[in-house]
């Protein structure tokens, strides 16, 4: 599938919260900005399910991050990418993290 043109991308920032307990948002992506690769639909929130609560349905998005936006100058190759599934309550609107 073709990557969206840089100007068409919807950029989102992962919240940098560090609560204790079970979350499915990897720590290394918190505070990092990527763009929506695809919308996966709604899923029960694992943060509820982990504690035996009924999971509230939350949109799940695949977000693509450029290595340079995750690891900065330590990136092995700046334009390689990481995709991860992130629940919508962890995401907020953002500007492109680097000049396209």
């Amino acid at each position: 599938m073709a990557m969206p043109a840089v100007t068409d991308r919807t950029y989102l920032r992962v919240r940098a919260d560090m609560p204790p307990g079970h979350v499915r948002t990897p720590a290394y992506l918190r505070g990092k900005t990527g763009w929506v690769e695809r919308d996966l639909g709604v899923f029960p929130n694992p943060e509820d399910l982990a504690y035996r609560h009924k999971g509230r349905m939350i949109p799940l998005l695949r977000v693509r991050f450029a290595m340079k936006d995750v690891w900065g100058s330590a990136a092995e190759r700046p334009d390689d990418t990481i995709d991860a599934e992130i629940y919508a309550h962890w995401l907020e609107p953002a500007e492109a993290p680097h000049a396209p």
């Binding site: 499915r24 948002t25 990897p26 996966l40 899923f43 694992p46 799940l60 695949r62 190759r77 334009d79 390689d80 990418t81 990481i82 995709d83 991860a84 599934e85 992130i86 629940y87």
Partner: peptide
């Protein structure tokens, strides 16, 4: 060749 890493973090 561009590398795309997929971190299987949730339901997929």
């Amino acid at each position: 060749v561009q590398v795309r890493v997929h971190d299987s973090t949730a339901d997929m």
